[in-house]
Amino acid sequence: MEATRVQPSFLERVMLNMRARPAAWIVIAMTLGFLVIIGIFAGPSQLINTIVTGGMWALMAVGLALVFGVMNIPHFAHGDSFMIGAYVAYFVFTPIQAYLRDNPNPFLSAVGPLIGWIAAALVGFVAGAVMEKLVFYPLRMRTRRGWVMNTFLLTVGISFVLVYGANLILGPNFRGVPNYWNVPPIVIGSVRLTMERIAAFVVAIVAIVAFWIFLSNTRTGRAIRAVAQDEMGAEMVGINLNFIYTLTFALATAMAALAGASLLFMFPAYPTVGLKPLYFAWYVVMLVGLGNVQGAIVGGFIVAVLQTLTQQFFGVSYEDVVPVVVMILVLLLVPNGIFGSEVKGIQEQ
């Protein structure tokens, strides 16, 4: 309950950002233009697909940006948080589904998937907190020299453990839920919208907006941003850095897990399912600027548009090649990303 608004709104911030960065303007204008083109030429269902995908990449990228901005960790295991979420949703939802088959219950069948998703987010949160306490906290206590590179390698190790651990315990088979709800798709004109798609998009938007409000308007959210900007200043006002680090990592993991859970209908759970989301999340943050959370939100959609364009004009097989070309251009033209990097530790080697 703030008496007045204490800071520029999201839109104002984006505007401010853009005034300082013409490249951002151009890219956003182009993205919107391409969205229209996609809508016209590839059809409205492609357009919807693009927007849904954009929401998901944004949700993944926000966590990545946050972890890099606040903790200076280039998180290579972020995709495995996605994987955790997918598995949890599967293992929570399938028993509910089985139960519903024998005992039909309209209320439960409506909220069943939500239970799976919330469970995924919670497990993700706990897993993130455990990872932070078990891995990064001890390293921080030992030394902060070469932090960025060392933590990068640590996340590589974590990824290894999680992927092969999943393989060990659950095996390499796919576990998917093709339909969360047994309802026919909504048809508007020529567009068929499945419930799953709508829900995935709503989840992404709700999670991002809630997270944004949390960051900008709550005491703890403000503390997270404070730590991202000046750690000593944060300690001076009484913020417990270790708490903020753990919280940040847990939140990022929870968001990725939520993404994995709500996309279970598209990406069935298997040990390396996280690789592609990881790749695209990195694509987003490199494009917009490392550690830039607002940029990551917009960037998710930019990347989704690029992806659709690639598929439409070059074919799916070039999905891996085009990002590199785009990134080379970005790094040559705007080395700090199109929205600029906002990272205190970026100067470290």
Binding site: M286, L290, V324, L331
Partner: peptide
Amino acid sequence: MLTLRLRGIFAAVMAWFVGIALMGLATN
């Protein structure tokens, strides 16, 4: 030439992307 003007982590990620692209090319 492409990446090594960049700071360590950028270079690593860029090399990763190029690696994925090369694998994509080999597959395609």
